[in-house]
Amino acid sequence: NKFNKEMRNAYWEIALLPNLNNQQKRAFIRSLYDDPSQSANLLAEAKKLNDAQA
């Protein structure tokens, strides 16, 4: 399933972002599970926040 693969990839990328705190990571990951079709958008948002907090 395409969404499962995208979701799994996004999950690990988000989990490993160095500048997000655990609460932020959990919120993004919860959103991934709520709507796997938004994986790419959620990952992009997480990366933006990660960069902003660098």
Rank of each mutant, 00 (worst) to 15 (best):
L17V: 00
A15R: 15
N19M: 09
L43N: 02
E13C: 13
Q24P: 00
A44Q: 11
K48V: 07
N4H: 12
A46P: 00
W12E: 05
K5R: 03
R26E: 10
L32P: 00
R8C: 15
F3C: 15
W12Y: 14
A15V: 13
D51Y: 11
E45P: 00
N41I: 13
E6H: 03
N21V: 06
A27G: 10
P18A: 14
W12I: 06
E45L: 10
K47A: 07
A54Q: 08
Y11Q: 12
N1F: 00
A10N: 04
Y33M: 11
D35N: 08
A44W: 09
L17T: 02
L49F: 10
Y33A: 03
L20H: 00
D34T: 05
A54N: 09
D35I: 04
I14Y: 00
N22P: 12
L32Y: 01
F3T: 15
N21M: 07
L43K: 08
A27Y: 12
L17I: 01
D51E: 09
K47W: 04
Q23N: 10
E6T: 03
S37M: 11
M7I: 05
S37D: 04
A54W: 06
W12S: 06
L43D: 00
Y33F: 14
K5G: 03
Q23Y: 07
F3I: 15
E45M: 08
P18K: 14
Q24Y: 03
A44V: 10
R30K: 14
A40M: 11
S39Y: 08
I14H: 00
S31I: 09
L16R: 13
N1Q: 04
Y11K: 13
Q23K: 08
A15F: 15
L16S: 12
Q38A: 07
N22K: 13
D51T: 08
A27L: 05
F28G: 01
E6K: 03
N22I: 07
S31R: 13
A15M: 13
L32G: 01
W12K: 13
N22T: 09
R30H: 11
A44Y: 11
A15G: 09
R8K: 12
N4P: 15
N50P: 01
D51Q: 06
A46N: 00
P36Q: 04
R8Q: 12
A52R: 12
Q23F: 10
N22W: 12
Y11N: 02
F28N: 01
M7K: 01
P36R: 03
F28R: 03
S31H: 11
A52Q: 10
P18N: 10
L43M: 05
D51V: 08
M7C: 03
P36L: 05
D35T: 12
D35P: 01
R30A: 15
K48Q: 11
K25F: 10
N4Y: 11
N19R: 06
L49H: 04
N19I: 03
N22E: 09
N9Y: 14
K47D: 02
I14G: 00
I14Q: 00
I14W: 00
A40I: 10
Q53V: 07
A52W: 06
R26G: 13
Q23A: 13
S39K: 14
E13M: 07
Q23S: 07
L16P: 01
K48C: 04
L43A: 12
S37L: 11
L42E: 02
P18H: 06
S39Q: 06
Y11G: 03
S31F: 13
K47N: 07
P18W: 03
Q24T: 08
A46C: 03
A27T: 12
N9V: 13
R26P: 01
N4I: 03
K25W: 02
N4A: 06
D34K: 08
L16C: 13
R30N: 13
K25A: 02
F3W: 02
Q23T: 08
A44H: 13
I14K: 00
P18C: 09
L49A: 10
M7G: 01
F28I: 07
P36C: 03
L17N: 02
P36H: 04
K5L: 01
M7E: 02
A44G: 11
L16H: 15
S39F: 06
N41C: 05
A52G: 11
L49E: 05
A15N: 14
Q53F: 08
R26D: 12
S31W: 12
P18L: 07
E13K: 12
N22M: 08
K25S: 01
N1I: 04
N50D: 07
K25Q: 02
K25M: 03
N1H: 03
K2M: 13
L16E: 12
N4L: 08
W12C: 11
D51I: 06
Q38M: 11
I29H: 15
M7H: 02
Y33K: 06
P18E: 10
A44I: 09
K48P: 00
E13D: 04
L32M: 04
I14P: 00
Q23E: 14
D34V: 14
Y33W: 15
A40C: 11
N21C: 11
S37C: 08
Q53A: 11
N19V: 04
N19P: 00
A10I: 06
N21P: 06
N22A: 13
D34Y: 05
S31P: 03
A15Q: 13
K5T: 01
K2W: 12
L32H: 00
R8F: 15
E6Q: 06
S37N: 11
D51F: 10
K5E: 15
E45T: 12
N1S: 02
A46G: 02
D34P: 02
A27E: 10
K2S: 14
S37T: 11
I29C: 05
N21K: 06
A46T: 02
L17W: 04
F28S: 04
A46E: 00
S37K: 11
L20W: 00
A44P: 02
Y11V: 14
E13I: 14
D35R: 10
P18G: 07
Q24S: 06
A44C: 11
D34M: 07
S39N: 06
L16V: 09
N19T: 11
A52D: 08
D35F: 05
A54R: 05
L16D: 05
D51R: 11
K25D: 00
W12M: 09
S37H: 02
L20P: 00
R8G: 04
N19D: 05
A27D: 12
L49W: 08
Q53M: 12
N41T: 11
F28A: 07
S37W: 07
D34G: 10
A10V: 09
S39C: 09
L42D: 01
M7S: 03
P18F: 03
D34I: 05
R26N: 13
M7A: 07
A40T: 11
L16Y: 13
L49N: 03
D51P: 01
I29T: 08
A46R: 00
N19W: 06
N50I: 01
L32W: 02
A15E: 06
A27K: 12
R30P: 01
N19C: 06
A27P: 02
F3Y: 05
L43W: 02
A46V: 04
Q53N: 05
S37I: 07
E13P: 01
S37V: 06
N1K: 09
L32A: 01
Q38C: 04
E13L: 14
N50E: 02
L49Y: 08
Y11P: 01
N21T: 11
E45F: 09
N41G: 08
R8W: 15
S39T: 05
L32D: 00
L20S: 00
N22Y: 11
N50F: 01
L16F: 11
N41L: 08
I29W: 10
Q53R: 06
P36V: 03
A40L: 12
A10H: 03
A44M: 10
L17Y: 06
N21L: 09
L43S: 10
A54C: 10
K47C: 04
R30T: 13
S37F: 05
A40N: 12
N4C: 15
Y33L: 15
N9M: 15
K25C: 05
N9Q: 14
